[in-house]
Design a protein around this nucleic acid. Structure first.
Length: 271
DNA sequence: ATGCGGACCTGTTAGC
DNA sequence: TGCTAACAGGTCCGCA
């Protein structure tokens, strides 16, 4: 479900409820997520003032005076503020209750998400320490992308989805960015000329920021932290449009599988 | 170092 | 209607 724009939308939706409050309680109903929620994590959080809610790639960092917790939404996770007294439902695996009695509730049917403790230097946590630049940050440029891809034979689609190369480009936006740049998803990463890599970096940057502006993409039942759906789906040019006419040239959009993930592209517009 | 396939899960939908 | 198979927005890990 959540890609970077959805995670960012979630962050913006719940940050105000957390920042400047302290944590009154952490209620865990199911510890078996992607990794088990560590025993004693509640104790590290309860009573702590929340100093911020940050995002790095698709990870959310809940910063407290005592250290940071890492939250990942996996494929099907969501975080939202629920009314007081709303009974937990199926797959509501944990709640964070603030000193203002606001409840931030995590739901994740597939349990690919996670809740971990990262201590005082969260960026040194193994999940975060190997990440490449933020796609919307200043270090992610076409020059960097071109430089780092030299000699790489993986397909460009798989390359931009590698979190060591650039952090947080997921399956939907990888297809969309390649379409924006006119680059064929099967092309070897190391065989793309610099000017086209500049277009690709810009494609990644623009598709992600456009999606954030729209509140993310709602494919099935995604909701942001404020409960609103995302409106970016209307602007997906190739993703999930197999056999439908290309927006630019009307040729049928193709669907292929790369690394067990669906890829959509136009064979006429992308080379 | 790189690249590939499998693993972790449940829910929805398409096809017979 | 009911059963089965395929598919889904992520990403780590182990092996060649």
């Amino acid at each position: 479900m959540p890609e970077l724009p959805e995670v960012e939308t979630t962050r913006r939706g719940i940050a105000a409820a957390l920042e400047g409050r302290s944590i009154r309680a952490v209620t865990i109903r199911e510890r078996r997520l992607r990794w088990p929620i560590p025993r004693g994590l509640e104790k590290k959080l309860v009573g702590q003032p929340v100093t911020g809610l940050r995002r790095r790639a698709k990870y959310l960092l809940l910063d407290t005076a005592n250290g940071s917790a890492i939250i990942h939404l996996g494929m099907s996770g969501s975080l939202r503020i629920v009314p007081e007294n709303e009974a937990p439902e199926k797959h509501d695996h944990f709640d964070i209750v603030t000193s203002d009695a606001e409840i931030v509730r995590f739901n994740d049917p597939r349990r690919f998400g996670s809740l971990l403790w990262a201590g005082k230097r969260p960026m040194e946590h193994p999940l975060l320490s190997q990440l490449g630049p933020e796609p919307l940050g200043p270090d992610f440029t076409g020059d960097y992308l071109w430089q780092s891809s030299q000699g790489r034979k993986v397909t460009i689609k798989q390359y931009i989805m590698n979190s060591k190369v650039v952090a947080g480009v997921g399956n939907i936006y990888a297809s969309e960015a390649l379409f924006r740049a006119g680059i064929h998803p099967m092309r070897a990463a190391g065989r793309i000329a610099l000017p086209r890599m500049l277009l690709l970096a810009e494609g990644i940057r623009s598709v992600l920021s456009d999606a954030i502006k729209q509140g993310g993409t709602t494919l099935r039942d995604y909701r942001g932290g404020d409960g609103k759906p995302g409106y970016f789906k209307q602007q997906l040019l190739v993703y999930d449009r197999g056999d439908q006419p290309c927006i630019k040239c009307s040729k049928a959009v193709k669907r292929i599988v790369q690394g067990q993930r669906a890829t959509y592209y136009c064979s006429n517009c992308q080379h």
